[in-house]
Computed example of a mutant assay.
Amino acid sequence: MGTVADRLTELGLTVPEVAAPVAAYVPALVDGDLVYVSGQLPVIAGELVATGKVGAEVSTDAAAALARTCAVNCIAALASVVDLERVRQIVKVTGFVASAPGFTDQPLVVNGASELFGAVFGPAGQHARSAVGVAELPKGSPVEIDVIARIAP
């Protein structure tokens, strides 16, 4: 199946610099064999690429693509504290979706992140997950993703 770096290349992805925190926290923290990745927004080159509510200003498909961008940023945060080849399992993904009233397809949005983790980490990318609709997210973002990963010593 190749290395994580090989799969990233096959997917046409480059791990960006870790996104700067928007408040008082660190992007990722190692505790034993777990890495806790703080919530990542759909930021590219330091800029939030979309704002709005999913189901109103942002379509489900567009939000899923934004969740994929969040997942790339989660991978960048992971890479800022450990070698990605040490990732043994993406244990838990939590997706927050800024939802318009009546929008109930949060799982379809978060699939954008889940599918990317599967493509990048293979079987180790399979994970437990929550997809939560919320009223607002930081900076007006439509989606935010956080991750817990298990790493090898």
Rank of each mutant, 00 (worst) to 15 (best):
1 M>F: 04
5 A>R: 12
9 T>R: 13
12 G>H: 07
12 G>P: 08
17 E>N: 10
18 V>H: 01
20 A>I: 11
21 P>S: 07
22 V>M: 08
23 A>I: 05
25 Y>I: 11
25 Y>P: 03
27 P>R: 05
31 D>V: 07
34 L>I: 08
38 S>H: 13
41 L>A: 04
44 I>M: 14
48 L>K: 05
51 T>E: 14
55 G>I: 00
59 S>E: 13
61 D>S: 12
62 A>I: 15
64 A>G: 08
66 L>Y: 14
66 L>S: 00
67 A>I: 03
69 T>G: 10
73 N>I: 00
74 C>A: 07
75 I>K: 00
80 S>R: 12
82 V>W: 11
84 L>I: 08
85 E>W: 03
88 R>V: 08
89 Q>M: 12
91 V>S: 11
92 K>I: 12
98 A>E: 15
99 S>L: 03
104 T>I: 12
106 Q>K: 06
110 V>K: 00
115 E>C: 07
120 V>N: 07
125 G>I: 00
128 A>F: 01
129 R>D: 07
131 A>W: 02
135 A>F: 12
136 E>G: 05
136 E>T: 12
138 P>R: 06
139 K>H: 13
141 S>P: 07
141 S>K: 01
144 E>Y: 00
144 E>M: 15
145 I>N: 03
145 I>V: 15
147 V>N: 03
148 I>G: 02
150 R>V: 01
153 P>C: 03
